[in-house]
C-alpha cells in the first residue's frame, strides 16, 4: 500500500491508461498488460539487478513540463500519474546500442543475434570480443544460485574483464539450475551414465532406489531436504517410479 492507503496507482503506458498495483515495477505492469518490453537480465524468480539496460523506457509526468528521462523498467516502481513510453525514438535507440554492444561481446550467441536482427542489426559496429563465449553478464545464474541458497557463483574481476565463475567449487550442489536458467546457454552441463558434469566438476548422481534412474546429486538432495524441512526419504525415487507407485496405492486402497 502507498502512503495514502491506496493499493493501485493510475498510470499510462504507450497511451493506455492502466491501474497498476503499488510496489510493482514498470516492466511487470507492462508485461501483465501485454505490452512487450525486451529484457536480458530480468528473471521473475530472482531479485532484479538492472545490469543489461535493455529494458529502458522513457518516463514523464504531467507536471514535469515536458521533461523526460530514461529509466530501467525492471527496477523502476510504478507511480501515480506516470506516463511511460516503451517505444519512443530514444528507447529504440537505446535498445539498438545495447544489442549492438552485446553482439560485440557474444558474436556467436543465436539468442542475441536474433534479438539484434529484430532491430535491424546484423553485424556489430564495435570490435568483436576475441575467443568469446556466449555469456552476456546478465548474472541470472548468480542470483538463481543465491535464491537456491548455495551461493556458489560470483562475478569476478571488474569492468570489461568481468566474468562469472564458481570461486568455491565445494559450495556448488550441482543442481544445474544456473545452466538451465541461463538465457544464452553459456554454462555447459552434460549428463551421461549417471554423472552430471558442470562447472568443471563431476557429480555422481543418486539413482532411484527402485528403477535406477538418475535423480539428482547427493549435495542437491541434502540441500533441498534441509531447506524444506522435508525428510530425505522424500528424495529417494524418480518421479516416474513414484507416479506408478501412487497409481498402485490408489488401486489397492480402492479395491481394499
Amino acid at each position: 500500500m502507498s502512503d495514502n492507503g491506496k493499493t493501485t496507482v493510475r498510470m499510462t503506458i504507450d497511451g493506455r491508461s492502466i491501474d497498476a498495483p503499488v510496489g510493482a515495477t514498470i516492466l511487470e505492469v507492462a508485461r501483465a498488460n501485454g505490452i512487450d518490453i525486451p529484457s536480458l537480465c530480468y528473471h521473475p524468480g530472482v531479485e532484479a539487478f538492472g545490469a543489461c539496460r535493455l529494458c529502458v523506457v522513457e518516463i514523464t509526468k504531467p507536471n514535469w513540463e515536458g521533461w523526460k528521462k530514461l529509466v530501467t523498467s525492471c527496477l523502476y516502481p510504478v507511480e501515480e500519474e506516470l506516463i511511460v513510453s516503451t517505444r519512443s525514438e530514444e528507447v529504440i535507440e537505446n535498445r539498438r546500442v545495447v544489442l549492438d554492444l552485446q553482439l560485440a561481446r557474444v558474436p556467436d550467441s543465436d539468442v542475441i543475434r536474433q534479438m539484434a536482427a529484430k532491430y535491424g542489426i546484423h553485424d556489430t559496429s564495435y570490435e568483436k570480443r576475441k575467443d568469446a563465449d556466449t555469456c552476456i553478464m546478465c548474472t541470472i545464474c548468480v542470483r538463481v544460485c543465491e535464491a537456491i541458497g548455495a551461493n556458489a557463483i560470483a562475478t569476478l574481476s571488474r569492468g570489461p574483464e568481468k566474468y562469472v565463475d564458481v570461486p568455491n567449487i565445494d559450495a556448488c550442489i550441482g543442481c544445474g539450475a544456473c545452466a538451465l536458467s541461463c538465457p544464452t546457454d553459456a554454462i555447459p552441463m552434460t549428463e551421461e551414465n549417471g554423472v552430471r558434469h558442470i562447472w568443471d566438476k563431476d557429480f555422481e548422481l543418486v539413482r532411484c532406489e527402485v528403477s535406477g534412474e538418475p535423480i539428482g546429486t547427493p549435495e542437491q538432495i541434502k540441500h533441498f531436504a534441509e531447506k524444506s524441512g522435508l525428510p530425505e526419504s522424500y528424495f529417494t525415487k524418480s518421479d516416474r517410479q513414484r507416479k506408478k507407485e501412487t497409481a498402485a496405492d490408489l488401486a489397492r486402497v480402492m479395491l481394499g
Binding site: G176, A177, F224, D239, K243
Partner: peptide, 20 residues
C-alpha cells in the same frame, strides 16, 4: 508460474511423482 528457476527440487520431492 514464471518464477521457476529450474532447480528441479519439486520433481524429486513430490512423494506421488506428479511434477516433471
Amino acid at each position: 508460474n514464471d518464477k521457476c528457476i529450474l532447480c528441479k527440487a519439486c520433481t524429486i520431492a513430490c512423494p506421488f511423482g506428479n511434477i516433471h
